[in-house]
């Protein structure tokens, strides 16, 4: 099951500069595991011990996965995952 993953500028150092990569998995967690296997290091920028990092936004198609099932969100073929770092500060 191949899905398209859109990678933000700040994480393209892991993907050899690629803006769009593909990943496989039935859930967001397994897609991220697959990404980490292909692009070592990227996983730690997305997930920490408590789950999805607070200031990383992940969207399945148009929906923030926090409003779906987070890392357990089920993914279907042809879905698009978009990763965007939060624009935030103090």
């Amino acid at each position: 099951m191949a899905i398209e993953v859109r990678v933000p500028t700040i994480l393209r150092e892991y993907t050899g500069g690629a803006k769009v990569v593909s990943a496989e998995g039935a859930t967001l967690q397994s897609a991220f595991d697959n990404l980490e296997a292909n692009y070592p290091g990227i996983g730690g920028r997305l997930i920490d011990d408590s789950g999805l990092r607070r200031f990383i936004n992940v969207y399945l198609n148009d929906e923030d996965v926090r409003f779906l099932d987070g890392l357990n969100t089920v993914i279907a073929d042809q879905d698009t995952i978009t990763i965007l770092p939060a624009v935030a500060g103090g």
Binding site: D64, T82, A86, A88
Partner: peptide, 23 residues
């Protein structure tokens, strides 16, 4: 101009769906 979803005197954050739309 973006909405500060945090509506705070000490913090700002773009709303998550506005952020996706913007990018």
């Amino acid at each position: 101009p973006m909405i500060n979803a945090a509506r705070s005197t000490t913090f700002y954050e773009f709303d998550s769906s506005d952020l996706l739309k913007l990018y």
